[in-house]
Amino acid sequence: MKSALLAQVEARLRAATPIVLTLLCVLLAAIPWPIPGAGAATSGVTVAAVYFWSVWRPDFLPAPAVMLIGAFQDCLAGTPFGLYALLLVVAQGLTLSQRRFLAGKFFAVVWVGFALIAPAVAVVGWCVAGIASGALLPPGPLLLQVGVQVALFPALAALLLPALRFGLRAT
């Protein structure tokens, strides 16, 4: 009886890991790093995390959870409410539309896939944030964000891989 309860708790824990880790990414992205431009660079880490889970195990991070995580990031970041909710949903939608091509490929292919999807999400963000604030946003900070996002993706993937394995063991 006790072991069944424990197994259930463990299963819940495993199922919640991707969501908790992505929420943690939101908190980590908000840390005031003492490096110039770090704020603009790190805020894209959630998009990278959503991409990671959507390529390997989209069922670990369901779309409504993605949207709620985006809304949480909007609350924390002070962006127009709904902006990150939209961007994360768009990121997952785009990734899933290409998943047949991406799943099961070498890591380098997945990385190139991210290098194509991250700018697309950034362009959507640039347009929507521009409309919401009624002004043309300077593209510089966004280019920096996309560059850092793509460059750091392997590091993030290396950090999330143990969590992926932990989740896979449950299924």
Binding site: P32, G39, A77
Partner: peptide, 15 residues
Amino acid sequence: RVIADPGGAFVRTLL
């Protein structure tokens, strides 16, 4: 103390 610098490319705010 500044506890978060979360804005990024879209907004510039501090918490």
